[in-house]
Amino acid sequence: MNINMTLIGQAIAFAIFVWFCIKYVWPPITQALHERQKRIADGLDAASRASRDLELAQEQAEQTLKDSKQQSSEILEQAQKRANQMIEEAREQARTEGERMISSARAEIDQELNRAKEELRAQVATLAVIGAERVLESSIDEKAHREMLDKLAAEL
């Protein structure tokens, strides 16, 4: 417990240790620490930037989805309308076609009827003449009676 040279020896040892620590121990460790701190800070920064980017991208994706949905519904609606229109058109066409066919058929029938009437008329005149000839058994002026019979046939 005496105070002696140990005091000085300890002071010297202490000085050497402190010098060594200042020179060779402290700098590399603190440097590594600060570098890591910087890296972590950078990393956190990048992460927050990335999350912001992600948010933006999500927003964009949502917007795109909404747009495309709207577009598709528009297209669908248009298609529906177009289909309806086409059906309507087809119906209309079918109707006019039918009407046209009916009227043409009717016209043909009329024509056919007229022709048949005409034929009948022609034959009636001949038949009438022949009949009259038979009845009268006499020669009749065919020319004079012909005119009269034609008139008769036209009244038919």
Binding site: M1, T6, L7, G9, Q10, A11, F14
Partner: peptide, 12 residues
């Protein structure tokens, strides 16, 4: 536990 050691440091 040796005062020389502690005083050596504190005097430094």
């Amino acid at each position: 536990t040796d005062p020389n050691a502690t005083m050596g440091m504190s005097l430094s």
